[in-house]
Computed example of a mutant assay.
Amino acid sequence: MSASPSPGSEPSKREWFSELIGRTRFIVIIAVIAVLLVAFSLFLQGTLIALSTVYETWRDMFAHGIQSEANTLTVEFSQVVGTMLKAVVFYLIGVGLYSLFIRPLNLTSALGVESLSDLEQKVVSVIIVILGVTFLEHFIRWEKPLETLYFAGALALAGGSLVLFQNVHKGSGSDLQQPEAKLRARRELFEHDTEGREIQERDVERAEQSTDAKSQGKVSPESGSE
């Protein structure tokens, strides 16, 4: 007769499988590397565009006068700002995913990113600014007024939808994000050069208290994410 499986064998298999599933979170590092490479490329591209624009602006200004480059200068530097903001979006996504799935970072805590909801809020905020900068470029050019008007309407719809999304999800971020935790993370990051973040027991206790207070209606949902 075959030996019957021991009572403790099944739980051990489940624990092994659970640990294996949990370890799959490290696959996110592929996305982190890819997104950070995109961010680095955009930062480099924005820097090169800025240097080229500054050089050409000063050259043309000495050749033709400052008035000839007034509008063009604003448009070109707006493009630099737009490129840098796009780089910031990818950078936030990269470090945010790393902090959420691989290891907590003081940088993301200082920026107020403690959950996927927080990351969405930050990214949406930057995208709204990018939309504004993009419209500013078209408005300054003022080449085709009717198309500019249509473009403004499209951006207004897109921006309004994003603002509505932010308002709907406002306050739904992590309860770990307390003001003193952000200040502590900033001190460790900028004064002590400590990149990794240690989640202390008092942070967990305050998060539990904040969650209980929100569920009982003692505080507003937005108060825990400031």
Rank of each mutant, 00 (worst) to 15 (best):
V95C: 02
L85V: 02
V129M: 07
A213I: 04
R202I: 10
V35F: 13
A87I: 06
R184T: 04
Y55D: 09
D118C: 02
K214P: 00
A185P: 06
A31P: 00
H138F: 11
A70D: 06
L146V: 14
E147G: 08
F90H: 06
S2G: 09
E191Q: 14
W142A: 11
H64T: 13
L176Q: 05
T83A: 03
L44M: 14
S4D: 14
R187C: 04
E69M: 15
V219W: 03
Q45C: 11
G160Y: 03
I49P: 00
F135K: 05
I33R: 09
T148W: 04
T211R: 15
V54L: 13
L111G: 01
L85W: 00
A87T: 01
E226D: 14
L107W: 09
R23Y: 14
I30L: 15
G82E: 13
V28L: 09
Q121G: 02
E188K: 13
G82P: 00
L146N: 03
S41P: 09
S12W: 08
S68H: 13
T134V: 11
I30G: 11
H169E: 07
L73V: 08
L37S: 14
V129W: 00
S223H: 11
V54H: 11
L44H: 12
A3V: 15
M1V: 07
Q216T: 03
G132M: 08
S220L: 15
I127D: 02
G196A: 15
S109T: 12
L37Q: 08
K218S: 10
L111E: 05
R187Q: 13
